[in-house]
Write a protein that binds this DNA or RNA. Structure first.
Lengths: 249, 249
DNA sequence: GTCAAGACTTTGTCCTTACATTCTGATATA
DNA sequence: TATATCAGAATGTAAGGACAAAGTCTTGAC
């Protein structure tokens, strides 16, 4: 008999932890894929065996596996078993800030706040589900990577964030400031386009000659569906592109 | 007692149908949101009551609700209940073709095939997980909406699709041709950028003056993680923008 | 030797039950 | 009156069992 045994990943489940068992399991199994203990194409231990080995119920194990399937880490096929997916379809956290993106790439992000003031803006207010005359905090920044400007950013925030300071924005970024106030954007609608830069944009981004900008406007929402931020940004197209995974739901 | 009773949606479950009960339920409830029977902010019937009313188990009902939460249609909060989400966070099927997008907007899409030939291409082959010298079917098209060109499209397909014809592409679009062969892309990695058009692109897209193009390259995969298509496209930035929902997973 | 039927493996669906956690609102106490 | 506690309502987590469906592989018949 040909015994293609799946590599058994060591998993430790802490039943006293407040983090759900299925999530503990998914985290540790994801770790095994991330650090190469499990390679794309490798067969995955089957659900029932895994459940028996870890003394977990099958639904719990299934839920962990489903979490990983949703992240594109695993592929399941009836009768065939579960396998580690092609690395190209792995999704990482999607809703990231440019700041975090640059850090992950090993570059050194910095921000300079061009202006920080309270304004009214009809389009931003509509995006934030607020009355058109609501006072909004408008943040205008230039984002650089390794001291070369790559983005000219406009953000509008609801009044409750009016205590955000210039220093905070320059040191940690906008999304960190929101996180510090207990707000976590989890879903956003983005519209991406391209156009020629305005003279102001050319100056801030150091654009010479005929080079376009990539534009992105974003409405971001928290888990409860409340709008938390509206942004309208433009990027030096020469140095920046947007990389996303899209999927059917 | 203040009785805020949720509007009861009529649901009919067919236990003999091959389609899973949770999916039947999710479809019918989604329909109620789509056609306005349930409005954003409306309280949703709670899980246990819904399960009792429909003679379904609670896990089955929960699975249907989870499906809708994943589509951004519902928001659940412990202790608070389930509510219909803000319409702005509703996701529709994301991985759509430009052809379908235009149809949905009520415009009239058409394609003209510029060339259709078998080639080798190192970059496309790498994206498709094939050897660099694999023969690939390359499709070059101009996509128009209401007879005005908006996109210049390059696609590379694995050899098994070499029977795709020019007529088929012009009448139904590429994704329909794939569907007809039992292949369904479900996830794609897209890279979006901007640049100035080449003379060829200017000619095909009818671009005058200093106008950039929006570029998008896409690697598409089926549910098993097999690469099914690689595309490299450019769009008239004046007439086209890319609209996507991104979320944390 | 080839093809078909059936056994086996694995995931998919569905049920029942139990208890935990979180938030609201009402009651009771100071 | 204001605060703290408690009950109620809703979702979240977890277990265990049963059967269905899909795909592979072996076995058996011709």
């Amino acid at each position: 008999m040909l015994c293609v045994s799946a590599h058994l990943v060591t998993v430790e489940i802490d039943r006293d932890s407040p983090v759900p068992l299925y999530h503990q399991l998914a985290e540790q199994l994801s770790g095994a894929i991330a650090d190469g203990r499990l390679q794309p194409g490798d067969p995955f231990e089957n659900e029932v065996a895994l459940a028996a080995r870890l003394a977990l119920s099958r639904p719990t194990v299934r839920r962990a596996i489903q979490e990983m399937v949703d992240q594109g880490l695993l592929v399941r096929r009836r009768g065939l078993g579960t396998h580690v997916a092609n690395r190209k379809v792995h999704r990482r956290a999607e809703l990231t800030s440019l700041w975090d993106d640059l850090r992950r790439e090993g570059r050194h992000p910095s921000s300079s706040v061009v202006s920080l003031e309270t304004v009214t803006d009809e389009r931003a207010a509509a995006a934030l589900d607020l009355p058109a005359d609501s006072p909004l905090l408008r943040v205008v920044r230039v984002r650089s990577a390794d001291d070369a400007p790559i983005a000219y950013l406009h953000n509008w925030l609801p009044p409750r964030f009016s205590d955000v300071t210039r220093e905070e924005l320059e040191e940690t970024g906008l999304y960190a400031a929101l996180r510090a106030r207990g707000v976590k954007p989890v879903v956003a609608r983005q519209t991406i386009g391209a156009r020629m830069p305005t003279p102001t944009e050319r100056r801030h981004l150091g654009i010479r000659g005929q080079q376009p900008v990539l534009t992105m406007s974003r409405m971001a929402f928290d888990a409860a569906g409340n709008a938390v931020e509206f942004g309208d940004h433009c990027y030096r197209a020469e140095d920046y592109s947007i990389d996303i995974m899209v999927d059917e739901r």
